[in-house]
């Protein structure tokens, strides 16, 4: 019996191993598709747009003549919007996360908040644009301003900051909290003196990832009506005549990098497409850099922190 079964068994085993190899190879190929697409994207952009990446490109305003057009108003706008976004999302997100992780009692209100945070993370970004258009632009009368855009993107990345902060807080051992409580510290003293400092690495990571999402986000900013020709910079505080107030820039019309790119991309002339590619390089370098920093920061925290 063994003589007849042996070879059959061996062919079955060989076949199974072959399948294993085939599926493993397909899996590896599928995974490298991700890497390949990323490289293809980048190479395509660089081939199309690198010749426009001169200092003038960063110092010129958009123009009707593609070879003179630049992204000065766009990158300044992006930077200022990011400032507002960070000032919205960081305090709100970190505070919300601290509440949910350290304070919240187990009841239906907490449950409701948790469900909402999860769902907000999955709401399409353009819906935040509609919210901003109805609420910030018209009901609150903030207009098509830097403030509106910053608040919108801030709300959009709020779930990212909350989730990252909660994960960082959860990673801190209970013993740290117990030690502080044993010395008579109040809950807020425990949070502000121990938990937040220890969690700061994880919080930074979450904030950077959130901002990298916000800087490339186009749809909500278009929806609030920012797609206009902007050939000026927001007022610098205390300059000009009459002198601008310290917060006048918040209410200034603006444009951001992805919108400038979309603007150029929607034109039929290929010369503008080259500008779009160059802007794309700037955006992708900014986001990849931010993501890279976040990934590096996270791995460093993981390897350095041993509780």
């Amino acid at each position: 019996m063994a003589e007849t079964q042996g070879p059959r068994l061996r062919t079955i085993i060989a076949r199974n191993h072959r399948w294993d190899l085939i599926i493993g190879t397909i899996g590896l190929l599928a995974t490298t598709v991700g890497v390949l697409v990323l490289m293809l994207l980048f190479v395509d952009l660089v081939i199309d747009g690198w010749q426009r990446l001169t200092p003038d490109f960063f110092l010129n305003f958009p123009s009707r003549r593609p070879e003179e057009a630049g992204i000065l108003s766009a990158w300044v706008g992006s930077a200022l919007v990011m400032v507002v976004t960070a000032f919205t999302a960081v305090p709100l997100g970190v505070a919300a996360a601290i509440y949910l992780e350290e304070y919240a009692p187990k009841n239906w209100i907490t449950e409701l908040i948790e469900i909402n945070v999860t769902n907000l993370a999955a709401v399409p970004s353009i819906i935040y644009g509609l919210l901003a258009l109805g609420l910030f632009v018209y009901i609150l009368g903030l207009g098509h301003s830097i403030l509106t855009a910053g608040l919108t993107l801030g709300l959009m990345i709020l779930p990212i900051v909350i989730v990252a902060t909660r994960e960082a807080l959860r990673a801190i051992p209970v013993a740290i909290r117990e030690a502080a409580y044993a010395l008579g510290a109040t809950r807020w003293q425990v949070v502000s003196d121990h938990l937040v400092p220890y969690a700061s690495g994880g919080i930074y990571t979450g904030v950077i990832i959130g901002l990298s999402r916000a800087i490339g986000e186009t749809a909500p900013v278009i929806t609030i009506g920012a797609l206009t020709f902007i050939a000026f910079l927001p007022p610098i505080p205390f300059t000009g005549d009459p002198p601008a107030g310290p917060f006048d820039w918040l209410f200034s019309p603006f444009t951001v990098l992805p919108i400038q790119m979309f603007n150029w991309l929607s034109r039929p002339q290929t010369a503008f497409h080259v500008n779009a590619a160059a802007t794309g390089i700037v955006i992708i370098v900014a986001t990849l850099l931010m993501n890279g920093i976040a990934i590096w920061l996270r791995s460093r925290i993981r390897s350095k922190l041993k509780w």
Partner: peptide
Amino acid sequence: LLAGVPTIVYGY
């Protein structure tokens, strides 16, 4: 990183 690429770049 691929997930972090802005959608406008994917559009291009």
